[in-house]
Amino acid sequence: MLKLNVNGKQHQVDVEPDMPLLWVLRDHLGLLGVKYGCGVALCGACTVHVDGAPVRSCVVPASAAVGKAVVTIEGLAAGGLHPLQEAWIEHEVPQCGYCQTGMIMSAAALLAKTPKPSDADIDRAMTNLCRCGTYTRVREAIHAVAASSASAAAKKA
C-alpha cells in the first residue's frame, strides 16, 4: 500500500512501488488528464507537479512521491480555471490537445518560479513536445499571463 497525496486528497493505492506515478494517476486514481506519450521522459505529456516542481511522471516511481504533494491538471485550479488555462482558451493554444495538459503544468511551474519569463526562459523550461506544433501560441499565452499578472501587481502596489 502506498499513501499518496494527490490534488490535496490522501489516497491509498495497492500497487507495485516501482509503478510509475503516471500509471497510478491514470489507472488507479482515474486522472486521465495526465497523458502518456513516450514513457521515457522525452515528451512531457505526463508532466505533473510534485511539491511544486514539474516532473515527468512516466519515469517517477510512485514510491518516490510518497509524502509529497502531487498536483495534476485536474487539481491545478480547484473548481475554476488557472490564469494559464484562461489564456490558453483566449489564445486558442491547443490543436488536438494531447500534449496540452503537460504543457500547462510545465508553464504553471515556470511562472511560479519566474513570473516574467523571457523567451529564453520559456524555451529552457518548455521542453514539452507538441506534435501539432502549437509552440508559438504556447509562448504567446505564457507571455500574456505574465503581463497581466504584472499589471495586476502594479495596480495593487
Partner: peptide, 19 residues
C-alpha cells in the same frame, strides 16, 4: 469564431483512444 473544443482541452477532459 472561438473553437468549441478548447475549454475541455485545457482541462484534460477529451477522451482519447488511450483513455
Amino acid at each position: 469564431m472561438h473553437r468549441l473544443d478548447i475549454p475541455d482541452k485545457v482541462m484534460g477532459r477529451p477522451v482519447f483512444g488511450v483513455d
